[in-house]
Design a binder for these strands. Structure first.
Lengths: 219, 219
DNA sequence: GTCTATAATAGGATAGAC
DNA sequence: GTCTATCCTATTATAGAC
C-alpha cells in the first residue's frame, strides 16, 4: 500500500492540518478521532500509527497551525512594509472568524486549553509568547507591556467576536479592536510622545528573529 | 420528603450555583450531570425534575452567575465611589483566575460558547452586553467603543491568564491589562484630552441603570 | 421531588489481518 | 501503514418505585 518513502509523513501532515482546522472550529471534545481520520482520507485504526493519543494530536495540531501562520507571514510576496499593521488587520478580520482558512488556536481555543494536560498547555503558552514577539515594537519593558496588551486585544477580540450571537455586534467589535491597536502602533511609529530609546536602527532583522520564536517546536 | 413549600426552588438554586462553578472551571463537556447533582447533594435522577436538558442547565447557570455578580456589585456595603475602578481591578485579579469564588462565564467560557446552541449563545451575548454597559462611562458612540475595548481586554486578559501555563507570566499579563484600563478610565475621569460632550451631570443614576442590564433574564 | 435501575449511544484505545 | 472488528468506559436521558 505504501509506495512512496515519505508516504507516512504526508499522511501525518494531512492528519495534522485536518485536526488543526477541526479542533479550532469545534474544540477538543466535539472532535472525534474518527472525524479527523475520515476527513484526512483514512480510518480510525490508522491513527495510532502516527500519534499515541488524542491529546498528543491536539498539541501537534496547535503547533502545525502556528507554523502555518508563520509561513504565511514570511511568504516571499509579503513586503516587510507595514508588516505589523497587516498582521493585526488580518487577525481581527471577519474572515478570520467565519472563513474556512486556518483559525488561530490561541483565540479559538483560549478557554478550551485550560482543561488540558501540561504538554498541550506548554505548547499553547509557547505559541502565545511567539505572537507577543511578533507584535512587539520596542525591546524594552514598556514595549513588552504594550505587546501583551495588543495580543490580549487580538485574542480577546477574535474569541469574543466568535462567541457573540450577533454578527453586527461582532463586526463592530472587531473594528473597534482593530483601530485601538492600529492607533497604538501608529503612535509608536511616528512621533513618540513618551520618553524612550532604542527604537530606530532596527529595520527588518528583528522581524525574522521574532517570527522564529513563533511555533518553534522544541525549546 | 419535601416538607417545605419552596423546597424545589432551593434545590434548583443549589443545582444552579454548583453548575455555574463547575461549568466555568471545566467547560461544558467535562462536567457531567452526575457530577453537578452529586455536589448539589442529590442523585442524577432528580435532575430532570428541574431542567429538560444539560444545555438548558448550561444557559441557566450562566445567567445565575451573572446575577450573582450583579448582586455583589450592588451590595449595600459597596460605595459608588471609584466603583468602576474596583470592578475592573477585581475582574483582572489573580483571585478571579485561581480562586474558589464564582468565575465570570464570559471569560471562562468564551471559546466554549461558540459550540453551543442558539439559546445558550443568546444568553451569553445578553450578559456580554450587560458588562459593556457596566464599564461604559459616556453615552455617546465613542464611549461605547471604549467600553467594548475595555470589556475585550477584561475578558481576553482573564481568559489568556487562565490558559497560560506560567503563573508569573499570567500575573504580569493581568497587571498589564489592569493598568491599561485604569489609565483609560482615569484619563476620562479627570482632564479630557479629546473633544467631547455630555459627560458631567450624570452621577450614579446610570450606574444602577447599567447594572440592571446585566443578567436580565428575559428581554 | 427524589431515588434506583436501565436503556441507548458515542468515542478512545487495542488486536490482528493484509 | 492502513484496514476491520472489538473492548471498555463514560454519559445523557428515561422508567418506575416510594
Amino acid at each position: 500500500m505504501s509506495w512512496s518513502p515519505d508516504h507516512k509523513e504526508r499522511s501525518r501532515q494531512r492528519i495534522l492540518i485536518t485536526a488543526a482546522r477541526l479542533f479550532a472550529q469545534q474544540g477538543f471534545d466535539k472532535v472525534s478521532i474518527d472525524q479527523v481520520m475520515s476527513e484526512a482520507g483514512m480510518t480510525r485504526g490508522a491513527f495510532y500509527a502516527h500519534f499515541s493519543s488524542k491529546s498528543e494530536l491536539y498539541g501537534e495540531a496547535i503547533l502545525a497551525a502556528a507554523r502555518n501562520a508563520r509561513d504565511s507571514r514570511l511568504r516571499p510576496g509579503a513586503e516587510p512594509d507595514k508588516h505589523l499593521e497587516r498582521v493585526v488587520t488580518a487577525y481581527l478580520s471577519g474572515e478570520h472568524i467565519s472563513g474556512d482558512s486556518l483559525h488561530c488556536p490561541l483565540a479559538f481555543l483560549v478557554s478550551d486549553i485550560a482543561q488540558r494536560d501540561e504538554q498541550v498547555r506548554d505548547i499553547w503558552t509557547r505559541v502565545f509568547r511567539g505572537l507577543v514577539e511578533v507584535v512587539r515594537q520596542e525591546p524594552d519593558e514598556q514595549g513588552y507591556a504594550r505587546a501583551l496588551q495588543r495580543v490580549v486585544m487580538m485574542i480577546g477580540g477574535v474569541a469574543v467576536a466568535r462567541a457573540l450571537n450577533d454578527d453586527s455586534l461582532s463586526q463592530t467589535l472587531l473594528e473597534t479592536c482593530r483601530s485601538a491597536i492600529l492607533d497604538d502602533i501608529l503612535c509608536r511609529e511616528s512621533g513618540d510622545d513618551h520618553a524612550d530609546r532604542a527604537h530606530n536602527d532596527e529595520g527588518k532583522a528583528p522581524q525574522v528573529a521574532r517570527a522564529e520564536l513563533l511555533a518553534e517546536p522544541a525549546g
